[in-house]
Each structure stands twice: as structure tokens, then as C-alpha cells.
Amino acid sequence: MGEGLFSQIFDLLFTTSFAASILRVTTPILFAALGGLIARRCGIMNLALEGMMLTSALTGVVVSAFVRKAVLGDLMPADAAYEAVSGRAVAAGAAAGFLAGVLCSVLMGLFLAYMAVQLKANIYLSGLAINTISTGGTVFALYLAAGEKGMSSSLNSCTMPVIDIPIIKDIPIIGEVISGHNIMVYFALLCVPLVYYIVMRTSTGLRIRAVGENPNAAESVGVNVKKVQFQAMALSGLFCGFGGVSLSMGYVSFFSRGMTAGKGFIGMSAMNLGNATPIGTTIAAFLFGMFDAMANILQSLSVPSQFIASIPYVATLIGLIVFAIQTDRKTKRLKEKHSK
């Protein structure tokens, strides 16, 4: 590796388009991480983030395409009224797709909660089972809806709008990086304080944390543990649903098989590395998003991208060790305090 390569990498990494791509790539990871965070705070390791995102991504695309078609009716692009109706159709399609995708993910969250809480199924196995069902089920459903197994490009689905932020968009460099993204990007950023508020400042959040820390103690003070777990899983599904919709209705307007490509698990790693705190999780999600974006770029430069692609997982392993040592020390300290 010569100096030439390094300067090439530098040139690619210090561009506004790279900075903007970090925001773009991080969005679904961040949503998944937030979804995992709420479940984990309730003591549930939700391995189904991936499957929930995948299913809601497909549902969003299919529903938006059908609603758009229904609103347009028999109008052809040549018709006079087409222009006026088409805008409305796209808006209705996008809204319906968004809602349907998110609803689908919430229902899956509740289903997982039913399996784990009511039927006492092993949470890891049922989470992984949901992923398998989603992987196959989405391809199956895609084949029924679009007649192909790879992509939904034959469906005319809608995307969420792109937002130009006034004033900021005119600032050089910053404007290019921050403005002009899909609305889901900004929504993801807004969800961070929202999740913080839900988990840390509401009574539901308090109950979720109480159940996560010690379900028996929570139950002894009158908390309905099962209900809280259902609530947490519904919330987890909600954020995964946002993530799924952002994948298929954000920068691209189609669903392709397996399009989550491990983003759910990267989100779960980010949540683990951030130790399920909203701020830590967000920082970790952005770090992983950056590595993901970097791996994409470095692929074009004959640098072994496999190393970059491994960074999130290695970082999580190290994170797991660090937290384990910290908790160990904390418990030891507490024990010493009490033995005095």
C-alpha cells in the first residue's frame, strides 16, 4: 500500500457525499437499535429485529403500490386529470404504506411477546424463528404480489418525501450534508429523544425498566409484568417498523429479498455496545453506520473491505467484555459496602 492509496481513501472519506451517506446508512440501523433497546430494557433480547424490519419493508411497498393504484383508478398518464390526481395518489400511497408497514411490525412484536410471555417459548428460538419466517415469507408474498422473487420493481410503490431544510440548505458543506435527506432520516434523529423520554420519563418507561431489572420485584409492587412486556414488544416493533419502511420507501422505491442484509443485527450490536442507553446506542449506531458507509466506499479501492465490515461486530464483542467487567466491579463494590 503506497501513499497514493491513502490519499485516495482520504479524498473519498472527506467529502460531503460521504458524510451524507453516513446519515443515510445509519437510519435503519438506528431504528433497529432503538427497537432493540426498549425490548432489552424490559429484559427481552429481541433477535427478531431483522425479520420485523424485513416484513414491514415489504408490507410498506405492497400496500403503497395498491393504494396508489386504487386512487389513480383507470387514469392514464395521457389523461388531463392525471397530473392533479397523481400527486394525491403518491401521497396517499406513501402514507398508507408507512402505516401498514409499521402496523405489521407492531403486530409481529406482539406475536413474539405472546409466544415468549404467554406460551413461555424460548425467546432466542422464537426470535430466530420469526427471522426465518420473514426471510421465506417475504419472498413468498413478493412472488404473489409482484410475480417475481427478487425485487418488487414491477410494483409502482411510493417513497417518503425528501426534505430540504430552509436556511440550512443554503449553507455550504453543512447544507449538503444535513439537508435534502429523506424524511425518515430526520424522523430517526427525532426518535432518539423520543425513546429517551419514553424509557426514562414516563410511567410506562419506569415500569419497563422495573420489569427488566427484576420482574419479581416489579410484580410484588403491583406491576402487571405481562402487560408491560407486551407494551415493550409493541414499542420495539414500532421502531423496527419505522426502520423497515425507511429501507424500502426511503432512498429506494422497491423491496428486494433479504434487503435488511444484517442491519437488524448491526442495530442489535449497537444497542449492546451502547449498553441499552439511548445516547450510547445512538453514538454506536452512528459509528457502525460510518463503518458500513466506509466499507461500501473501500470496496471500490481494492482494500479488503471485509476488515471494515467486521469492525461493528468486533467492537460489540469488546463492548460486551467491558460492560461485563464494569458490572462485575460494581457488584463487588456493593457487596463490600454491605459487608462492612
Partner: peptide, 22 residues
């Protein structure tokens, strides 16, 4: 019928067998 329905069957079986209260 697309082959992918097997994944769905596989997932469902795992869930039902793993469910203690089933």
C-alpha cells in the same frame, strides 16, 4: 408454489415446539 414457504413452515415448527405452554 414458490419453495420459500418451507422457511415459514420451519419457523412455525420451531416456535410451537419451543413454546412450553403449547
Amino acid at each position: 408454489v414458490p419453495i420459500e414457504f418451507v422457511d415459514v413452515v420451519q419457523g412455525l415448527i420451531i416456535m410451537f415446539v419451543a413454546a412450553e405452554m403449547f
